[in-house]
């Protein structure tokens, strides 16, 4: 692998007595789309949340785009602008319009003027196909639209990496497609993406690599075809078997 854009090594995370991550190494190349799968409680969301330090790892090292995320001298707020994150429950700000959601960090973190932030915000909303919803509040949008606004909120800051934490799990089945469509176009534009999700169809035809986690460790990883069709570990086989039966 050329110099990875995300380089996480020996990540441990304890929640009290609970050992959630037991020494995880994850390196992601620029423009790579990595899918992280695994049973609930396997630590995949925690791993994702450690990468932008929403969770503080107990030990290990994380370098994203050349920035040491765990160095106390690192300006974490500055570093986080380069790492977009999309949440399972969207987490849009309900008291603001779609445009307000997208422009808040542009104005207050990136320091853009209101006019410039609005221009960038409209462009981001256009990219997710919601140019005509700029003045709607989250309550007036469907789940799929809300999640696309959330994606626009991240990409407006022009991140180097995007983290997706089960982005379609809270959506009605008929709304999943529109969100995956946006993720696909992001991938085509060359965005580096780490996705925690169970959308196996999407993983199959869009992911470069699938990482299977269980019990706080990466059990095995490889191209989607290899992981889905010829998994080498018993636990991977069992998990793939379970989700494919559904």
């Amino acid at each position: 692998m050329t110099k990875p854009i995300v380089d996480a090594r020996a990540i441990h995370k304890h929640f009290g007595a609970l050992h959630v991550l037991k020494g995880v190494d994850l390196r992601v190349a620029e423009r790579e789309l990595v899918f992280v799968i695994g049973p609930s409680g396997s630590g995949k969301s925690t791993l994702l949340r450690c990468l932008n330090r929403l969770e503080e790892p107990s030990s290990g090292s994380i370098v994203v785009d050349g920035i040491d995320m765990l160095d106390p001298r690192t300006d974490i707020n500055h570093a986080r602008q380069r790492i977009g994150m999309v949440f399972q429950s969207f987490n849009l700000y309900p008291h603001m319009t779609a445009l307000g959601n997208v422009t808040l960090a542009l104005r207050k973190v990136a320091g853009k003027s209101r006019a410039e932030a609005d221009r960038l915000g409209h462009a981001a909303l256009e990219r997710v196909g919601l140019a005509d919803r700029a003045e709607h509040t989250p309550g007036q949008l469907s789940g799929g639209q809300q999640q696309r606004v959330a994606i626009a909120r991240s990409i407006a800051l022009e991140p180097r990496v995007m983290l997706f934490d089960e982005p379609t799990s809270a959506l009605d089945p008929e709304l999943v497609g529109s969100v995956l469509e946006v993720m696909r176009s992001l991938r085509e534009s060359g965005m580096t993406m780490i996705v925690v999700s169970h959308e196996m169809g999407f993983a199959r035809n869009a992911a470069d690599r699938v990482v299977f986690m269980d019990d706080g460790l990466i059990v095995e990883q490889g191209p989607p075809a290899a992981i889905f069709e010829t998994p080498t570990h018993e636990r991977t086989r069992a998990f793939i078997g379970q989700i494919q039966r559904h």
């Binding site: 932008n52 949440f87 987490n91 960090a105 973190v109 959330a150 909120r153």
Partner: peptide, 23 residues
């Protein structure tokens, strides 16, 4: 206010105080 609101703000680089004030 759900914790996810602050997390969303902080993930875009807002400081703790900004997340409190704006979100």
């Amino acid at each position: 206010v759900p914790a996810g609101q602050v997390e969303a703000g902080r993930s875009t680089g807002l400081s703790r105080l900004q997340a409190m004030g704006y979100i």
